[in-house]
C-alpha cells in the first residue's frame, strides 16, 4: 500500500516554495517570487495556505524603509516535506 501524498504539498507552487525554504534559513517574498516565477497574488495565497497548515512561518518587517515579508520553514513543515519526499521515492521505486 502506497503512503498518501500530502495534498497540501502536491501542488506545483507550494512544493516549489517548500523546496526552496527547506534548503535555506529564511527567504523573503521577493526572492520566492523571482525563483518560482509566480505572480504576487498567487504566491500570497499559497503562502497563506502553508502558514495556516503550520508548515511555514511568516514575519513582516522592514529592510531600511521598505516593507519585507520573510518566510521560514517550521519543524512541522520540515517533517511533512521529508515524508512527502520519502513517499515520492516509494512511488518511483515501485514503478521501476
Amino acid at each position: 500500500m502506497f503512503p498518501k501524498l500530502d495534498p497540501l504539498l502536491h501542488s506545483e507552487l507550494r512544493l516549489a516554495v517548500m523546496s526552496i525554504l527547506a534548503g535555506v534559513d529564511e527567504a523573503d517574498f521577493t526572492y520566492l517570487k523571482k525563483q518560482t516565477e509566480a505572480t504576487a497574488g498567487n504566491l500570497s495565497v499559497q503562502i497563506d495556505k502553508l502558514t495556516t497548515a503550520g508548515y511555514i512561518m511568516v514575519e513582516k518587517g522592514f529592510k531600511g524603509k521598505m516593507p519585507r515579508t520573510t518566510c521560514r520553514i517550521t519543524p512541522a513543515g520540515q517533517e511533512a516535506f521529508s515524508k512527502y519526499v520519502e513517499a515520492l521515492k516509494e512511488y518511483l521505486s515501485a514503478s521501476k
Binding site: 502536491h10 512544493l15 535555506v24 518511483l92
Partner: peptide, 22 residues
C-alpha cells in the same frame, strides 16, 4: 503532477536557490 515531476521540481528548486546563494 506525477511522482517523477514532483521530485524533479524539488531538485530543480533546491539546486537553483543553492546556486543563487553561492
Amino acid at each position: 503532477m506525477t511522482a517523477q515531476q514532483s521530485l524533479q521540481l524539488i531538485s530543480e528548486s533546491f539546486n537553483k536557490s543553492r546556486k543563487d546563494i553561492l
